[in-house]
Nucleic acid binder design. Structure first.
Lengths: 128, 128
DNA sequence: ATTAAAATTAAGAATAATTACTAATTTAAT
DNA sequence: ATTAAATTAGTAATTATTCTTAATTTTAAT
């Protein structure tokens, strides 16, 4: 079931995500991709984001605010969320794969991956 | 502003959360606390869950499924989400505070805490 | 114990994010 | 060019959560 075609919308979404170092929501992606694909609908954006993160080509980040954020970088890495301005950024750290190994040690199931999100004040909000 | 009264609902919610080792949603909490407080409303459950997690007495867990989950254990610890049955459990690991220190090293802002969620197959779903 | 102010609540309306539906369009493979 | 499968726009529907308001409960002070 379901081979994956090459669709204009899908490619525009991926291309847009690649240009961003922050991690936009579906709404933001929609408003931007619209400039390239004026007829695209919000539903299409959602459907493709879900599809793409299901096959692991992009990442979905659930950081606790109302909406999901999306990351064009499929490689696992930690994120940072500012409690003041709510920006969602990448956080530079050495490889954290050892966490999976560690987690698996006393665990009855199988750990496949993890999401690590740090919270605090970003460089712009910390003075206050 | 706003001192925190002792309210029957709020205490029943906390008490219920303490009895659970899984991490129920607002809806599940509502349906259970109802047996003790038959007149409680879903809005009250939501309001108190938000209040309690704001003051750090409980934890809110955003694990990527449609709804938030809540943890009566305020102490930071990692969680596990099963990709098959979607249970949300605690995961036993040694203290992970060093992650915050590590994260702060190359970071311009201030890391205060983190959420670590592992994904995979739980002990009951792993055979398949 | 009374009382008055502040906090909390139930109930239901409102909102916001996301998904589902359907007929039309696009894509890939002949 | 033809056809079947995949994708889409547009819109309706759903779901989780928040907001509003008048009534009730709690607290602290008498």
């Amino acid at each position: 079931m379901a081979t994956l075609n090459r669709s204009k919308s899908r490619e525009a979404i991926v291309r847009f995500l690649m240009t961003r170092k922050d991690h936009p929501t579906a709404e933001v992606i929609y408003n931007n991709v619209r400039q390239e694909c004026p007829k695209i609908s919000l539903g299409t954006v959602y459907r493709n984001l879900t599809l793409l993160s299901d096959i692991g080509e992009i990442q979905k980040i659930s950081c606790g605010d109302a909406s999901e954020h999306f990351d064009g970088n499929a490689k696992p890495h930690p994120h940072f969320v500012c409690n003041k301005c709510h920006r969602v950024d990448d956080l530079e750290m050495d490889d954290l794969n050892f966490l999976n190994t560690l987690a698996n040690q006393k665990f009855g199931g199988i750990v496949e991956k993890h999401q690590l999100i740090f919270y605090g004040k970003c460089e712009f909000c910390k003075e206050n």
